[in-house]
Design a protein around this nucleic acid. Sequence first.
DNA 1: GTGGTCTAGACCACC
DNA 2: GTGGTCTAGACCACG
Lengths: 127, 127, 127, 127
Amino acid sequence: MFDDIDPRSPTPLYEQIAARIRLAVAAEEVEPGDSLPSVRKLAGELRVNPATVVQAYRDLEDDGFVTTKRGAGTFVSRVEPEKREEERESQARALVRELIADAARLGIGITELAQALRDELGDRLDD
Amino acid sequence: MFDDIDPRSPTPLYEQIAARIRLAVAAEEVEPGDSLPSVRKLAGELRVNPATVVQAYRDLEDDGFVTTKRGAGTFVSRVEPEKREEERESQARALVRELIADAARLGIGITELAQALRDELGDRLDD
Amino acid sequence: MFDDIDPRSPTPLYEQIAARIRLAVAAEEVEPGDSLPSVRKLAGELRVNPATVVQAYRDLEDDGFVTTKRGAGTFVSRVEPEKREEERESQARALVRELIADAARLGIGITELAQALRDELGDRLDD
Amino acid sequence: MFDDIDPRSPTPLYEQIAARIRLAVAAEEVEPGDSLPSVRKLAGELRVNPATVVQAYRDLEDDGFVTTKRGAGTFVSRVEPEKREEERESQARALVRELIADAARLGIGITELAQALRDELGDRLDD
DNA sequence: GTGGTCTAGACCACC
DNA sequence: GTGGTCTAGACCACG
């Protein structure tokens, strides 16, 4: 699950970790109520300073993606679909349009963008 | 050409500057042999410290995108087409990664994103 | 280890520092995983600005001789034996080039230099 | 004769040019009284700023390797062998010993040094 | 004029 | 604590 953690990437470790979990929640790879690995266990697996995992979990808690129960662990929250599906779809389309505009401004065409999308999303593009 | 330089972005100024020029070379907006603005001139335009521009130019020289002739200035190098293409692809991937991160932050999963992509790009996704 | 750093040399301080460390790695004076002195500590020892050491470390990281872990420090990387050998050879060539230049400046031609080399090195020249 | 001029080397162009001519004089590739190429001609050949050649010639004149006659050109001087041959030989040996010491201090052995010498001097080692 | 190096010192994010 | 970035400004060598 944490294959893509790259210590040399410019984006901080804790953000990479949080992003991966956020994605897992959004993609429903993990269910509400599931427990996340303990800070020490995850830190060990990722060969990362425990403080880094702590910061990732704190970020997630701030976002409402997880809740921490002292002495018990960290658990996936029930994500309230506070926004109507329609609204989320429109937001998604807005993001995509923004992507295309940014690319165009930089002189990157649709073809290259499509290639990059396949590179990054792979099969998940066909979901 | 340097509209996007944002001092508050987490990615360093010199990297933003270098990235912009790298892409200009990759997209052949500038030709081999063209001279880049002088360090001081560009620094003035961008309201940035000259040393920051120096670092950007240094990175570009390390990558082989420009050559600097001492006492004369900094010039666009001849760059292999494959390398140009690679650069365009890499920047495209960066944009896509940003898209995914933004989406995740809004609670939008890959599935919804993929749908939006198909909505906006349609067939061109298969180029 | 850093005796040779000479602020009056025409070659920049950061290059001298980087070269010295590069060679220490190449000669296995330091082992992969060893930590380098912190930027501030080394800067203090060498009576040099921290930014100068930062630039040296940055060069070394670009070359792949060291890895820096954010917030943790800078560490010696595992380096391929061929690369180590190459580095040693390149520094040896630099020394030789210096020798030739010094000789020429004293009006000593290649012929006389070759004779002196045979005198001093003898058979070992054919190793 | 000027194959090794490298605009990207850290040693200045004018020094590279001067060094090459100094060597030619020392190796008696050119005879006293021979004329050097005109500043403009040489600058053209080397694709270098004429001012660079001027500075090289001025350096050489300071050293006494050449003399410039206004309107006529630049000529190789008769190099006075002011020092006895023996003294020159001893100087050469001193340089070589210095080389070996420097190398040892950096952890570079005789073998690597010998290889570098062959790389840089090639056939001329057998003169 | 050009780029390159270095300093002193501030500020930041990360671990 | 760590490294990274940036500024302001000085100084230098090169063309």
